[in-house]
Amino acid sequence: MSILVIAEHDNSSLKQATLSVVAAAKAIGGDIDVLVAGENCGAVAEAAAKAEGVAKVLVADNAAYGHFLGENLGDLVAEQGKNYSHILAAAGTTGKDFMPRVAALLDVAQVSDIIRVESEDTFVRPIYAGNAIATVKASDSIKVVTVRPTGFDPVAGEGGSASVEQLDVVKDAGLSSFVSEQKAESDRPDLASAGIVISGGRGMQNGDNFKMLEQVADLLGAGIGASRAAVDAGFVPNDMQVGQTGKIVAPQLYIAVGISGAIQHLAGMSDSKVIVAINKDEEAPIFQVADYGLVADLFEAVPQLEEELKKVL
């Protein structure tokens, strides 16, 4: 078997999610190559070459891939991947965008968002917002799979010494072009890989009040998330949404503040190691999944939390 992993990156650094995808590839077994497609992404290729278990890094460095347009990546990966038994990518918004195109171009089914590998053709994935866990078997000769990074412990990012090979194939479908982007600039750890996440919901009442969470997050080195209700209400930007249709997180500690615990929210965080809920309604469903529940008004509890943490950290 031979597996092609598509690296997730921002042209300057390799995302940790990629190391989790390599871990999924190792669980399948076989030779693992990594494809880095981007623009001026040499540093990413170097990082990928150091990842544990990678045999070869293929680099497609061209303006056509700079913004990870789904049409161009789809064409590139379908062509490069057709001689592999498996093509894997992280189930982030980039992988979700181009991988189904790859599958369609190769005329094979895609298995989305796997959390476990049972064998080379059988995978485990959540369906119905995590209310059911399906074991699915793929019968196509090439398996196109997206991987939920929180399902797999990342391989080591150091110590490997893969060879690096430049590809000079340029796939520019000419169907789409990049116009602009609005990036959330923040020094905080990335939600998906943060060890601690503190999230606010509708109970926060407005965006300004999220500053309270920021102060706690600064003390803990935590990432900040939100429920859909908080994003819809405009308190915080969309990239902070945790849940079925937002980001999936599984930190060591997840603190839910003013979040009721709707099933769609739980889908994004219920694999966290320890869950804390702060909510003034003792009947809130979030308490059914919380290891530690505090029934309290968040406007009192969160400042107190900041003070108590200062004492012990």
């Binding site: 399906a134 074991t135 699915v136 530690y292 505090l294």
Partner: peptide
């Protein structure tokens, strides 16, 4: 092209404890 071999309920979490205060 995909066959579902089985569908199971998720492991599920147990509710933990309620704490009295922030301390």
């Amino acid at each position: 092209r995909l066959s579902t071999l089985k569908v199971e309920a998720p492991a599920g979490r147990q509710a933990g404890v309620k704490v009295e205060d922030v301390a």
